[in-house]
């Protein structure tokens, strides 16, 4: 497993690239958007009743389902007073013609690690409140993201769906009885969140920035970067996820652009979630 670009290759790419760049210089996109506009977002939560939290997020026609399952387990030895969470991501073979079944390839590993980084480094989940017996028993959250339909930018869609599932999830409640863990039947609690992490994927062609690229754009970008922001616009995660040169000056511009876009996206997400948010 080595080279694994999603886009097409060949001379047609160079023609497409020129066309996309010329449009961008006029402030337009190949699909009619502004360079700094996201595609329409829809959020459906509670789509899988057996999950402890779930959401399908559509970003244009990119569609990602995240489900959360909770178990009780032992904490990491170096973090005895914190609950545990892991993020996994799969590029399902039904989502795109080049996605194959089998163990996660480097794209899927990168996706899961970037989603994990956005949630973990922003301290989004209050892990200290997910402890049952210090050093022994804690809540373990398994956050699994499935790409159902791929039309570009699975990073931002995955973060949105993971956050939507976390914000609206209701996990089983446990109690400690004589040093043993017992599930409280019929009782659930919200997942304690401290911030709403949002990622913004930005692409660069020559000197022009765009957000939320579709596959035809992804295949001609000079490079791209994903930046995760907390609710107070601190940067918590960065991943330059494609080859290519990123001039330092344009990176600074991207960080500022992403900040603004993340605020709009967060507002949009919270608006979509509305009353579904468990507080």
């Amino acid at each position: 497993m080595t080279y694994s670009a999603i886009g097409e290759r060949g001379f047609a790419v160079k023609i497409t690239r020129n066309r996309i760049y010329e449009l961008l210089r006029q402030g337009k996109r190949i699909d009619g958007r502004d360079p700094l506009s996201f595609r329409p977002i829809t959020v459906k939560t509670g789509v899988v009743e057996k999950a402890d939290g779930s959401a399908i997020v559509s970003l244009g026609s990119t569609k990602i389902l995240t489900g959360i399952k909770v178990e009780v387990g032992t904490p990491y030895p170096d973090r005895p007073n914190e609950g545990v969470f892991t993020v996994n991501a799969e590029l399902l073979p039904l989502a795109y013609k080049t996605f194959e079944a089998g163990p996660p390839d480097e794209r899927a590993v990168e996706l899961s690690r970037v989603v994990d980084r956005c949630i973990r480094e922003s301290h989004a989940i209050d892990l200290e409140s997910l402890v049952l017996i210090r050093g022994e028993k804690v809540y373990m959250l398994y956050i699994d993201c499935y790409v159902l339909d791929y039309d570009g930018n699975y990073f931002d869609a995955a973060v949105l769906s993971a956050v939507a599932a976390l914000a609206t999830g209701a996990i089983p409640k446990y109690r400690v009885v004589d040093g043993r863990i017992e599930k409280i039947e019929g009782e659930r609690m919200p997942i304690p969140l401290r911030t709403v992490p949002i990622s913004v994927t930005m692409g660069l062609i020559k000197d022009v920035l765009l957000v939320d690229p579709i596959p035809v754009e992804e295949s001609v970008l000079d490079t791209s970067i994903i930046v995760g922001y907390t609710s107070d616009s601190t940067v918590a995660a960065v991943q330059k996820n494609t080859p290519g040169l990123m001039p330092a000056s344009l990176l600074r511009q991207a960080l500022e652009t992403g900040k603004l876009k993340s605020q709009q996206l967060r507002e949009k997400l919270l608006g979509c979630l509305g009353d579904a948010v468990k507080k």
């Binding site: 940067v235 080859p243 001039p247 330092a248 900040k259």
Partner: peptide, 30 residues
């Protein structure tokens, strides 16, 4: 924040960040 650059070209070729920094702190770090 690991950074790899092509210094002659003034360009970043690898950039990751784990942990919280403001945009200004990232600029200073770069």
């Amino acid at each position: 924040m690991p950074v790899a650059m092509a210094p002659r070209l003034g360009s970043i070729v690898l950039l990751q960040l784990n942990g919280m920094m403001t945009v200004e702190e990232i600029s200073a770090g770069l």
